[in-house]
């Protein structure tokens, strides 16, 4: 793999993301609207903002992974652009990595916007650990981006991928524990959720932004996301190239 080619392609992909109005709207604007509505109606805005940061970062990761990265890969395959790339110094691993680089860039932009909005709404910076939060984004985001590429390796058309992404995103978000109060739903959902990637993504992000990735549950979630990343790389290398 050629690092110059990888950087050039990653920047190109990032520029494609910003050409898609809907992608930008749902990735950046919607989380900011959610934050504004929830924080402004809360009795303790600072605590609520602090609680929401990992959740909104998780939402951005999910949307970027399933709606932008995975769908884009299917579009590459569908249009023949993917084949054309493979006859350059871009190989299947570079495509997976450039997806991750684009995903990280978008998430970091989203995090910056969320933190700036928190500061504007509450007047203080949320009580989070930025360094460990970034480490958590690295682990959780990488795992999720590469996991989302797996269905893209098998799906043949962009429309099918959009449908799959929509269904998957509901499942992922429902079982992540972001939306429903798990305690009130029942033991089955609690058990199922512990095997779902969204749950562990949120686990890593919450632990990271709290500054403690060394608890048992955080380490389990970290191992889960790293496993997802390894599985994603394995499938991409196996199914998107024969060399």
């Amino acid at each position: 793999m050629n690092s110059r080619a990888l950087i050039a392609f990653s920047l190109f992909e990032l520029s494609l993301f910003f050409k898609a109005f809907l992608a930008v709207l749902f990735t950046f604007v919607m989380p900011c609207v959610i934050l504004a509505v929830v924080v402004s109606s809360s009795e303790d805005p600072v605590a609520m903002a602090t609680e929401l940061v990992p959740v909104l970062v998780g939402l951005i990761i999910v949307f970027v992974a399933v709606f932008t990265l995975a769908v884009q890969l299917v579009i590459y395959t569908e249009t023949g652009f993917y084949k054309r790339l493979l006859v350059t110094y871009i190989d299947s691993t570079a495509i997976a990595l450039s997806n991750a680089i684009r995903g990280y860039s978008v998430v970091l932009i989203g995090l910056t916007l969320i933190l700036a909005e928190c500061l504007i709404l509450t007047g203080v910076f949320p009580d989070i650990n930025i360094f460990w939060g970034l480490v958590a984004i690295l682990i959780g985001g990488g795992g999720f981006f590469l996991l989302a590429i797996i269905p893209a390796c098998f799906v043949k058309s962009a429309n099918t991928m959009f449908t799959m992404s929509t269904v998957l995103s509901y499942v992922i978000i429902f079982f992540s524990g972001t939306m429903p109060p798990f305690g009130g739903i029942g033991i089955a959902v609690n058990v199922i959720s512990q095997f779902m990637p969204g749950y562990h993504l949120l686990g890593v992000l919450r632990a990271g932004f709290e500054g403690d990735l060394l608890t048992t549950s955080a380490m389990i979630s970290t191992a889960y996301m790293l496993g997802c990343a390894a599985l994603g790389i394995f499938v991409v290398r196996r199914n998107l190239s024969w060399r």
Binding site: T79, G80, K83, R84, V87
Partner: peptide, 8 residues
Amino acid sequence: QLQEANLF
């Protein structure tokens, strides 16, 4: 130059 390669 591929037969079916298209660009965005």
